[in-house]
């Protein structure tokens, strides 16, 4: 192990860390915004309503993130209509392609987690809400969604970690995230151990931070269930 290589390139890794955090955070936000309506549509009994969201979730959960990223980054240029339209500057940039792919991916997984959580809502809670005279919208806003979010939290924590780990594929489409920094260092010095172990440690720390953060969050949201 040559620690001078690691120390000399620490600024590069920190830049990569910033890109990783940006990508993952923005994708998670967009994914969550996408997932809530998708999950609500999935719980419908009408096939015309759940059909399309189901196909979306099935496709994105059943195929590798790398292939999804390639479909957007390499694939979109195949269509002349896209190449000549105003959105082409977005699909030309690896950053935006990665962000779109990650958002759609985590949106699908999160929707599935939320769907499960919504389906597990105890009947009594919904009946009580109805008995209190709440409208459907009020019921969802006050009863069903808050309790579903609480039940979804542990699984969502895992999804956040998967998204962080999945985001490493951004380095394949030229982005300099944490792994991208490692790849540059490896290319420059041909020192794979130093380069990739450093990347790995950055990811490991982020993972532990996320696990810790979700533990606190779970404690907070389940405070009323704890024995005192």
């Amino acid at each position: 192990m040559d620690f001078t290589i690691i120390l000399d390139n620490l600024p590069l890794y920190v830049q990569g860390l910033w890109i990783t955090i940006q990508l993952v955070f923005l994708a998670l936000c967009a994914g969550l915004v996408l997932a809530v309506p998708t999950a609500l549509l999935l719980t419908s009994k009408n096939p015309l309503v759940w059909g399309l969201p189901y196909a979306y979730v099935y496709f994105f959960r059943g195929t590798p993130l790398l292939v999804q990223l390639f479909l957007i980054y390499h694939g979109m240029g195949q269509f002349e209509t896209i190449r000549e339209s105003f959105i082409w500057p977005i699909f030309r940039e690896a950053y935006w392609c990665a962000l779109i792919a990650f958002s759609l991916n985590t949106g699908a997984y999160t929707a599935e987690i939320l769907r499960g959580a919504i389906n597990q809502t105890p009947w009594g809670e919904i009946e009580a809400a109805k008995a209190c005279g709440m409208r459907k919208v009020t019921r969802y806003r006050r009863i069903i969604l808050p309790s579903a979010f609480r039940r979804a939290l542990p699984a969502y924590g895992n999804e956040v970690i998967f998204m962080l780990h999945g985001s490493a594929v951004a380095s394949i489409v030229t982005l300099v995230d944490i792994l991208g920094a490692g790849r540059i260092v490896n290319a420059r010095y041909f020192a794979p151990w130093e380069a990739y172990v450093t990347s790995g440690l950055f990811y490991l720390c982020l993972t532990f931070a996320i696990v810790y953060f979700f533990k606190l969050w779970e404690r907070r949201w389940s405070a009323h269930l704890r024995t005192r």
Partner: peptide
């Protein structure tokens, strides 16, 4: 703990390039 905390792509590059050297 370590394996589940590190992305698979990082481990793959580490084992492919690092393993070769080792």
């Amino acid at each position: 703990t370590v394996i589940r905390g590190i992305p698979d792509l990082v481990l793959m590059l580490l084992i492919f390039y690092g393993g070769q050297i080792a």
